[in-house]
Design a binder for these strands. Structure first.
Lengths: 137, 137
DNA sequence: TTTTATCCTATAGTTTTACTAGATTTATTA
DNA sequence: TAATAAATCTAGTAAAACTATAGGATAAAA
């Protein structure tokens, strides 16, 4: 299951990406438009800013804005920041690899064999989509 | 992330599938061979039996055994029983569909658009693999 | 200096996960 | 038929993760 954090984060990012002008948008506006708790969204946007996706401006007329063009933001990086590893098990993760302590031999492990395929196919989808591809209209 | 329940369940199923004879195997043997807590495995095997994958025999010489040929058991059904919905969000689930209450129009939702693709690609992998395909050697 | 808005830390409630304990039931076998 | 081996059932729980909220600090603009 996708966490609410990831879901809301994606919605906020696409809302910012769909903006005609690249000017700061207030948290309250995003929260209202996407039906998200403002306080929760606040912490999510902070994560996205620290990860380098967003810039922010304080004070009146402040808010959040995208730092890059939406077509330059692949889903792989967004998902990894919001949701964590793309792989379903650490032993098939590219960026967060960890050996299973219950498994003597990965090459003979059925779970490993299956999840390698899942990882590859999911990765292909995420690599194939940038933020720009998710904007409708 | 894949739950331990699913991971252990898959391992237990492949262990049973790799058996040369289709005779009852004791929980303790599976637990020992796959490094799984016996009590936890017990509840997992119960789930698999109730779902129709396994049969059981009580008393001495009892245990669990596969009811079908491994090639007749697709991963889609196994994963749905152990892990639940394959879709990452309920609004793209085939078997467990639910509308998001924060989302006025699914067709304009970025999360929906992306997760539809993820669901399709993951489904393809699970449909392409039966229990028989996971056995090595 | 007042208003507006982000920044930051803490924390509370809920749900899920991963297991454990122990009593019960059933089937074999001596 | 009594003993024993083995599965079943019920219940509970500790820890972690997730979701959300509170409250004040900080910074910028008017």
């Amino acid at each position: 299951m996708l966490s609410k954090k990831t879901k809301y984060g994606l919605k906020a990012l696409t809302y910012l990406a769909s903006q005609s002008k690249r000017e700061p948008v207030q948290i309250s506006e995003i929260a209202r438009h996407e039906n998200i708790s403002q306080k929760f969204l606040e912490s999510i946007l902070l994560t996205l800013r620290k990860a380098g996706f967003l810039g922010s401006k304080k004070g009146k007329g402040g808010g959040y804005y995208l730092l890059k063009d939406p077509s330059e933001i692949p889903m792989t990086t967004v998902i990894r920041v919001l949701e964590g590893p793309i792989a379903m098990v650490p032993c098939v993760s590219l960026n967060f690899y960890e050996k299973c302590d219950d498994c003597p031999d990965e090459n003979k492990c059925a779970v490993h064999k299956l999840m390698l395929q899942v990882r590859d196919s999911v990765l292909q989808v995420y690599r194939n989509n940038t933020l720009a591809d998710l904007i409708t209209e």
